[in-house]
Amino acid sequence: MKNASLIINAVLAVAVAVLYYLHFKDRQPDVESVVAKPAAAKGREIVYVNVDSLLTKYEFFKDTQKVLESKRFQLENDLATKGRNLQNKVAFFQQRAATMTQEQGRATEASLQKEQQDLLAYRERAAQNLAVEEQNKNKQLYDQIYDYLKKVNATNKYEFVLGYTKGGGILFADPSGDRTKVVLDGLNKEYKDKPAPAKK
């Protein structure tokens, strides 16, 4: 009887131990619950500026585009005039070729070919100069926007100011994060207040 009682006590002790283990095994203290959670800190804002609106309404960009467009137009007119002059010379040469000596004909033809090559080289140089000027103006535009945003964000209010373009990398932008008007107003005010560069 004593042996039976010991066996029953041993089985009961093992059963209690198993039940104790099963009961508390899923209740391991969570590391997060043990460590006191700090109060949720509000992060700095992420806002955006509509790049299309910025480019169409920023006065510096509009003025720059007018200047570059005017230079493109002048270049096209200049090239068209030079091209017509060359065509006239070629037509005149073709009319007079029969009355020229072979030597005169070759010399005139060589002169016209050189003039054509010079015109092509001039067009290439002028297009490159215009492209470099446009690149410099774009850099100046970016620098002005960056400097303005850096100055406005001196208090670290914004963590990011994204450039939003429809069809660009940002698929959705909540209108509450749109700072386009504020940035545009500030940029245009600074541009208007900036003294005009001295004319050379």
Rank of each mutant, 00 (worst) to 15 (best):
residue 25 K to C: 02
residue 166 K to L: 15
residue 50 N to K: 13
residue 42 K to I: 05
residue 56 T to Q: 09
residue 184 L to R: 10
residue 49 V to G: 01
residue 75 L to W: 00
residue 68 L to E: 01
residue 182 V to G: 10
residue 174 D to Q: 08
residue 92 F to G: 02
residue 99 T to V: 03
residue 132 V to M: 10
residue 184 L to P: 08
residue 139 K to D: 04
residue 179 R to K: 15
residue 156 N to T: 04
residue 141 L to V: 12
residue 118 D to C: 12
residue 64 T to L: 13
residue 15 A to L: 14
residue 160 F to E: 14
residue 101 T to I: 04
residue 46 I to D: 11
residue 197 P to E: 14
residue 183 V to A: 15
residue 135 Q to C: 02
residue 61 F to T: 04
residue 165 T to G: 13
residue 180 T to N: 11
residue 61 F to M: 05
residue 120 L to P: 05
residue 176 S to K: 15
residue 78 D to F: 04
residue 56 T to D: 06
residue 117 Q to R: 06
residue 50 N to F: 06
residue 191 Y to K: 12
residue 125 R to V: 09
residue 76 E to M: 06
residue 29 P to K: 05
residue 181 K to L: 15
residue 154 A to M: 03
residue 107 A to H: 01
residue 135 Q to R: 07
residue 125 R to F: 14
residue 140 Q to G: 08
residue 95 Q to R: 07
residue 153 N to L: 05
residue 177 G to S: 14
residue 44 R to P: 08
residue 87 Q to V: 00
residue 81 T to G: 12
residue 143 D to R: 09
residue 128 Q to P: 08
residue 150 K to S: 06
residue 58 Y to E: 04
residue 192 K to M: 09
residue 25 K to A: 05
residue 56 T to H: 00
residue 60 F to I: 07
residue 73 F to M: 00
residue 46 I to N: 09
residue 153 N to P: 07
residue 157 K to Y: 13
residue 188 N to G: 12
residue 55 L to A: 14
residue 138 N to L: 15
residue 112 L to D: 03
residue 112 L to V: 04
residue 60 F to L: 11
residue 103 E to K: 07
residue 166 K to D: 14
residue 16 V to N: 00
residue 59 E to Q: 15
residue 80 A to V: 13
residue 188 N to W: 09
residue 49 V to F: 05
residue 6 L to T: 08
residue 139 K to W: 02
residue 39 A to V: 11
residue 112 L to P: 01
residue 103 E to R: 06
residue 30 D to I: 00
residue 77 N to R: 13
residue 59 E to N: 14
residue 40 A to I: 13
residue 11 V to Y: 08
residue 184 L to W: 10
residue 190 E to T: 14
residue 3 N to W: 08
residue 115 E to P: 04
residue 45 E to M: 07
residue 188 N to L: 11
residue 28 Q to M: 04
residue 177 G to Y: 09
residue 135 Q to T: 07
residue 103 E to Y: 03
